[in-house]
Design a protein around this nucleic acid. Structure first.
Lengths: 104, 104
DNA sequence: CTGAATACTAAGGATTCCTTAGTATCTTTG
DNA sequence: CAAAGATACTAAGGAATCCTTAGTATTCAG
């Protein structure tokens, strides 16, 4: 059993952009000589990257950080959609949710 | 500067339910003798709790896990709303977002 | 003020990670 | 196929971080 959703989310995301483990690690600012084992350890659930590392990887991929911590697939997909929106669109989503919350 | 959004999110959440640091830690399954310093270290940004710990705390509070990893306040609030919904309502949100994404 | 509850801190043993030095597997291409 | 290059993967140990212990500081009710 995996310790965090990171291995799964990382692989999903990396496969989509079509980068190697090393390439993604280097793009996220890792030392090129150590990027390969580090990224592999993250994806194989041997080690857990710290928050700053997740943040840099998320930035490279254009994904919101919380996506990598979502165990639920639906919530993960919602986070992907939210990540693609501009601030305005996201504010609208938030406003809608606030209204729904009042009614419900 | 904080290393993760966890201290901020944790304090927000704990203040709302009105539990002490120790109480929340114990409720999340920590050894009562060590719950106080651990929770305090998390809230004061001295240490970062591992994922399983965040998950247990989130479960006690009824918050979705990714909320604790959201730096953006709007996204954090959206996650709170999503956390309060049942699976049906969340599926509807996801379906709406998929449609919006297609329209561009 | 006094006591109880809560918040907080230092320090070190325990745990986990990052780096180094590789091996294994897959994918061309001659 | 065979060789070569790219990609994926692993072990092990020094480096970094955390959890536990043993407290001190602060807040608050009586």
């Amino acid at each position: 059993m995996s310790r965090t959703p990171i291995p799964k989310r990382l692989k999903e995301a990396r496969d989509r952009v079509g980068l190697s483990q090393t390439e993604l690690g280097v793009a996220a600012g890792m030392d090129p000589s150590g990027a390969s084992p580090r990224m592999n350890q993250y994806e194989r659930d041997r080690h857990v990257p710290d928050f700053q590392t997740v943040k840099r990887i998320a930035a490279v991929l254009g994904y919101p950080v919380p996506y990598f911590y979502a165990e639920d697939d639906d919530l993960a997909e919602i986070l992907l959609h939210l990540g693609k929106m501009d601030d305005d669109a996201r504010s609208t989503v938030l406003a809608d949710l606030r209204k729904s919350a009042c009614r419900g």
